[in-house]
Computed example of a mutant assay.
Amino acid sequence: MAKIGIYGASFDPITNAHLWTASSIAHKFKLDCVIFLPCSNQRLDKNMHISDEHRWNMICLAIDGNDKFVADDYEMKHYNWDITTYCTMEYFRKKYPKDDIYFIMGADLLVEIGKEKWKKSKELVQENKFIVMARKGINMLETIAKSPILRNADYGQTFNLIDKGLAIEISSTYIRDEFQKDGEPRYLIPESCYEYIRINHLYEEKGEISNEQTKEYH
């Protein structure tokens, strides 16, 4: 039986912090695999700045050579209104029925789930396991204790909390701004991705990728 972590994000672009976080979590929890899961460009709470194709290509470049890292475009293939984290985890549980699957997230998302701001929040926590990274100003144990759906689903294995050791922050927004303003974000992202961005002239102008621009990729 393998242990698999599902690591979802925009990855716009993927950074060295994403890779370090995934590697640290894999080491700490003895995960056999971390799946990098880029989100759908249709999410209403996200504004993508490059096409799905470019995001996907950079993820593949960034994780190349690490046998524990793989990429999956499951959410990228779905429109936002067709997909939820509950559906995503159900998909991976069916794909890997003999393995332990963990959803990797920050404590800020734990707060949202606890307040039932996500679709099927109750079912999500009842049927899955989580690795939760600390976020400044959030008491994770208190968050669980204050939420009926969180505390009633936690039997010692549901929430695996990382309270210290993952404080590194490299903002994708900062990196995009550096490229746009002719700055130098080298060494904040993998070298292969840095070269890819330069060659393809990505992030040189501000603005989001519209749904029409990205539909063809799906």
Results as ranks from 00 to 15, higher is better:
residue 12 D to N: 15
residue 12 D to R: 07
residue 12 D to I: 10
residue 12 D to K: 09
residue 13 P to V: 11
residue 14 I to D: 03
residue 14 I to Y: 02
residue 15 T to G: 11
residue 15 T to D: 07
residue 15 T to P: 09
residue 16 N to M: 15
residue 18 H to Y: 11
residue 20 W to G: 03
residue 21 T to I: 15
residue 21 T to K: 01
residue 21 T to D: 01
residue 21 T to P: 00
residue 21 T to S: 11
residue 22 A to H: 08
residue 22 A to Q: 07
residue 23 S to G: 14
residue 23 S to F: 06
residue 23 S to R: 14
residue 24 S to D: 04
residue 25 I to P: 06
residue 25 I to K: 06
residue 27 H to N: 14
residue 27 H to M: 10
residue 28 K to S: 11
residue 29 F to H: 10
residue 29 F to R: 07
residue 29 F to Y: 15
residue 30 K to Y: 07
residue 30 K to R: 10
residue 31 L to P: 04
residue 32 D to L: 10
residue 33 C to T: 07
residue 33 C to H: 07
residue 33 C to I: 04
residue 33 C to R: 14
residue 34 V to R: 01
residue 35 I to F: 00
residue 37 L to W: 00
residue 39 C to Q: 01
residue 39 C to A: 14
residue 40 S to H: 03
residue 41 N to L: 02
residue 43 R to W: 04
residue 44 L to K: 13
residue 45 D to I: 10
residue 45 D to Q: 12
residue 46 K to R: 15
residue 46 K to E: 10
residue 46 K to D: 08
residue 47 N to K: 15
residue 47 N to R: 12
residue 47 N to A: 14
residue 48 M to I: 05
residue 48 M to Q: 02
residue 48 M to S: 05
residue 49 H to V: 05
residue 49 H to R: 13
residue 49 H to P: 02
residue 49 H to S: 14
residue 50 I to C: 05
residue 51 S to F: 01
residue 51 S to D: 06
residue 51 S to H: 09
residue 52 D to V: 03
residue 52 D to N: 15
residue 53 E to P: 03
residue 54 H to M: 04
residue 54 H to P: 03
residue 54 H to C: 06
residue 55 R to P: 00
residue 55 R to G: 02
residue 55 R to E: 04
residue 56 W to I: 10
residue 56 W to P: 00
residue 56 W to N: 04
residue 57 N to Q: 14
residue 58 M to V: 04
residue 58 M to W: 00
residue 58 M to K: 01
residue 59 I to H: 04
residue 61 L to N: 13
residue 61 L to D: 13
residue 61 L to W: 09
residue 62 A to C: 12
residue 62 A to L: 11
residue 63 I to L: 02
residue 63 I to E: 01
residue 63 I to V: 13
residue 63 I to H: 01
residue 63 I to T: 06
residue 64 D to L: 13
residue 64 D to I: 01
residue 64 D to V: 05
residue 64 D to M: 11
residue 64 D to P: 00
residue 65 G to K: 13
residue 65 G to H: 10
residue 65 G to V: 11
residue 68 K to L: 10
residue 70 V to S: 07
residue 71 A to S: 12
residue 71 A to M: 02
